[in-house]
Simulated scan of single mutants.
Amino acid sequence: MRIIVAGWLRFDGGDVCAQVVRGGAQLIAESRSEQGCIAYNWSVDPLEDGLMHVYEEWESERDLLLHFKHSSYLEMRRHLESFRLSAFDIKLYSVAGTEPVYTETGEPRSTLFGVSLD
């Protein structure tokens, strides 16, 4: 089953998130190359200093569990802990299925997973 990891981290000390992301670029690249990694991204919030968003997709629970033992994950934790992390909220989501958001013509779909407003 596909797994999504999504959430945010808040750092004290002003606008440090760009430094966090740039300093973690190699770790992000290593994580992206791991078995089962579909997406792995850290992004700076454009409106709030000190707020960073995390988004990951993994093919399976097993792939994510292996990631937690991988050197890139262990080094990522050390990297993040070198900054003043004041709060975080990161959750796991299991995905039963996926569908495209847009039609072939680029319009938002009118039905999602069999549900429509009609």
Rank of each mutant, 00 (worst) to 15 (best):
A39D: 07
G24Y: 08
H67L: 08
P46F: 08
D49K: 13
I38C: 08
L66F: 11
W42D: 04
D63C: 12
H67M: 07
H70L: 04
F68K: 14
V44K: 00
W42V: 00
E61L: 06
M52F: 05
R32A: 10
Y73F: 15
A39S: 10
Q35S: 12
E59A: 15
E57H: 09
G24A: 14
G36L: 03
S33W: 05
I28D: 02
R32I: 14
Y73W: 15
K69C: 13
N41H: 14
W58I: 02
E57I: 03
E34D: 13
M52R: 01
E34R: 10
E56C: 03
S71C: 03
W58N: 04
V54W: 01
E59L: 09
S43G: 14
L64N: 05
S60E: 00
E59T: 11
G50K: 07
R62C: 06
Y73L: 06
R32V: 14
D49A: 09
S33H: 11
E56K: 01
Y73G: 07
E34W: 07
P46V: 04
L66Y: 09
E34T: 15
S33Y: 05
E56Y: 05
G50R: 09
A29D: 15
I28S: 02
G24S: 12
W42L: 02
M52E: 02
P46I: 05
P46W: 05
H53V: 01
G50T: 04
G50H: 06
L27T: 13
A29T: 15
D49C: 01
E34S: 11
H53N: 09
R32D: 10
S43N: 10
F68S: 07
L66E: 10
R62M: 07
D49F: 03
P46Q: 04
